[in-house]
């Protein structure tokens, strides 16, 4: 670890270049900030210091950088952004490590596949909508006390648990070459409701993304979740379904939780193949 290196090796300042944007549809611009070096910083603490500092490297007073964060321990999925060109969680992006790769500066950009709301804050509603599309839930009858669920073998739990750790951070889709940004502009005469409907329609026919495919496989492997397995597979062969996957396998490479997304995708590939053939013969 750099933190253990002799003090002489430590830089005095950290240069942080941030891609900012004042609102949707506006032109992005860059600002440079200079932060005093401290050991064991992460990108979150850098952004906190920028907020407290309130000025750029040349002393210009600027509003704090807007970004999203939550737990700061990589389980909530809030703080995704592009750091030095790679999408990841900013809480687990340790400055000492980043400086090892590039001592000159740290570059922060918003995620590339979602509309920017402001600075590093993006609109990720589409991610969650995809979970609705694949019906990522167990269709229980009620929330009354009906006794325990079915017994499950440890092997099944061990297969499901990693998939269930998906925190909808969006890294997989941001790195996916088949997942494209959808940014609609609101029309003048459009109501909130109409605009939302139009957005959801556009999302619905575009690629659902690896995270949603993986969630579909998670619930298809649950004793009760299985009961609507066919509906989930139908969603996966609908427009924007699994066929849009291009097997670049970036999803699994950038997933901060190391979820076996490509295994889920291949499993979904097999399931949809069999499902389609069966459906065709049973028609």
């Amino acid at each position: 670890m750099i933190a253990l290196d002799p003090a002489a090796n430590r830089p005095q300042f950290i240069n942080v270049r941030v891609k900012r944007q004042d609102g949707p549809g506006q032109e992005p611009y860059w600002q440079l900030f200079k932060i005093d070096y401290e050991p064991e910083l992460n990108v979150i603490s850098i952004l906190q210091r920028i907020a407290a500092l309130g000025q750029t490297s040349d002393g210009k007073k600027v509003p704090p950088v807007v970004w999203d964060c939550g737990c700061l321990e990589e389980v909530c999925g809030s703080c995704t952004m592009q750091i030095n060109g790679r999408v990841r969680q900013s809480c687990s992006a340790l400055v000492d490590q980043l400086l090892k790769d590039n001592a000159d500066e740290i570059v922060l950009e918003p995620m590339s596949k979602f509309p920017v709301l402001r600075d590093l804050l993006v609109d990720r509603r589409r991610l969650f909508k995809a979970l609705e599309k694949v019906k990522a839930w167990v269709p229980v009858d009620s929330y009354y006390n009906m006794g325990p669920g079915e017994r499950q073998l440890r092997a099944a739990q061990e297969q499901n648990y990693p998939l269930s750790q998906c925190m909808s951070c969006g890294c997989c889709v941001d790195a996916c070459p088949q997942y494209n940004k959808i940014e609609l502009e609101r029309k003048k005469d459009e109501t909130d409701e109409e605009f939302r409907k139009r957005e959801e329609k556009a999302w619905d026919t575009a690629f659902v993304g690896p995270h949603a495919i993986s969630q579909a496989m998670l619930f298809n492997n649950h004793p009760t979740g299985k009961s609507i397995a066919g509906e989930r597979l139908d969603a996966l062969i609908a427009p924007g379904g699994i066929q849009a996957c291009g097997n670049a396998q970036n999803c699994v490479a950038v997933c901060p939780k190391e979820i076996p997304l490509t295994t889920s995708i291949a499993r979904a590939g097999r399931a949809t193949t069999i499902h389609t053939i069966k459906k065709w013969f049973e028609k």
Partner: peptide, 12 residues
């Protein structure tokens, strides 16, 4: 890639 698409090879 077809092997993945069709679900022939699944695990890493």
């Amino acid at each position: 890639t077809a092997g993945i698409t069709w679900g022939l090879w699944i695990s890493p």
